[in-house]
């Protein structure tokens, strides 16, 4: 299992590394050099990167495996589908957890132990939970329909997620009379422990289902 995780980890390390080393510092440049805006909507935009990075790494990894015929090679080895998918699920889980902890810790460091830092943990943990469910659903889709078909849809979702904060702020929320701050407060107000536990249970519950679907659709 560890060997598989190591083999599959390239894209996850790359995406996570790029975010940590490049994107996060860029996004927070003002916080370090300029006056700290305690604007909570800032968190709204930054948080979406969690889902974006994990789903992006998932898509890039699956695309790479598809192009290099990785599955077809692995199928010939004494590995069950569940073990192969289990390694992928473990990577998604670890990446989500690492991102959530990193993002929250960095915001805590940058903003000091203020209300924004406290809220950021709740916000990121809830987003992480959402991310796990989306990743699990993505694997169900890939297992059922194959990467060629479902990969395009996943790429579309990924691009949409990247644009979603702008779309929500400019086009979706205003007609509903809701502000970004309202959304943020709603997410922060959620019970992150319950959200995390439910998402984790659902996520790992999708593993045997995806393995089963994969076995029945391979042809």
């Amino acid at each position: 299992m560890l060997r598989l995780i190591k083999k599959f980890s390239v894209m996850y390390v790359l995406y996570l590394g790029l975010y940590m080393v490049l994107l996060f510092p860029l996004l927070n440049y003002d916080r370090v050099t300029g006056p700290d805006t305690e604007d909570p909507s800032y968190m709204f935009y930054q948080g979406i990167f969690l889902v974006w990075v994990v789903l992006g790494a998932l898509w890039a990894h699956e695309n790479l495996e598809h192009k290099t015929h990785g599955y077809r090679f692995l199928q010939t080895l004494p590995l069950g589908w569940r073990k192969i998918l289990g390694a992928k699920f473990a990577l998604v889980f670890a990446t989500t957890a690492a991102f959530t902890v990193y993002q929250s810790a960095m915001l805590w460091i940058l903003t000091g132990n203020g209300p924004l830092a406290a809220a950021s943990w709740n916000y990121n943990a809830v987003l992480g939970s959402l991310c796990l469910i989306l990743a699990g659903l993505a694997y169900l889709g890939i297992s059922r329909f194959g990467f060629v078909l479902f990969g395009k849809l996943l790429l579309g979702i990924w691009i949409f997620l990247f644009l979603s904060p702008i779309l929500m702020r400019e086009f979706i929320l205003p007609p509903m009379g809701i502000t970004v701050d309202d959304v943020l407060q709603m997410v922060i107000g959620m019970n992150w422990v319950a959200a995390g536990l439910i998402a984790t249970a659902l996520f790992w519950g999708m593993l045997p289902l995806a393995a089963c679907m994969n076995r029945h659709t391979k042809a």
């Binding site: 010939t76 080895l77 004494p78 590995l79 069950g80 073990k83």
Partner: peptide, 10 residues
């Protein structure tokens, strides 16, 4: 499957 594939050269 795993036990069998362990004993097969393919």
């Amino acid at each position: 499957e795993q036990e069998i594939k362990n004993r097969i050269g393919y």
